[in-house]
Amino acid sequence: MLVEIVFWTFAVLIVLSALVAVLSKNVIYSVFALLFTFFGVAGIYVLLNADFIAITQILIYIGGILVLLIFGVMLTSNITSVDIRSGQIGVFHTFWAGLISLLVIAGISYIALSTNWATSSSHSEQKATIETIGNSLLTNYLLAFESSSVLLLIAIIGAALIARRK
């Protein structure tokens, strides 16, 4: 009962703020609406007993990506007084955007409905998810883990290279 109330609160929050993010003409509203979307998704993760992913969601998406987006938007509008409102889009764009969105929705719905999800009882005993995650990262998923660290290294070197160039 309580879980359902919490779930629907977060679900409504996600959908409404995502709609604001997509439909708002003012980019700054879109960016700040994303704050609530990310927060709601983190809440859903908590309900799924995925506490590590929930906190990572807050740390990476709200603390990292959103701040970066805000920086980008802020530096373009109030300082340079460039109009950053999104303009009108034509029929052609609307058609293709709609088609692709429908295909994505159909694909996700198909996967969600056809997969046999391994569900556990909702109140399983609390155990440290981080130990399990750490163990599997360094055993079964070592290649993925190491290649993502190489990716980050490339990003750092690239950033340093761009910053150095005078």
Binding site: I55, V67, N78, Q126, K127
Partner: peptide
């Protein structure tokens, strides 16, 4: 279980709040 990580993560809201107010 992840208290220390959690405290660190919610600090992100302060950055957003400050930037929101300043902008």
């Amino acid at each position: 279980n992840l208290g220390l990580y959690y405290i660190f993560a919610v600090g992100a809201f302060a950055v957003i709040g400050i930037v929101m107010g300043g902008w």
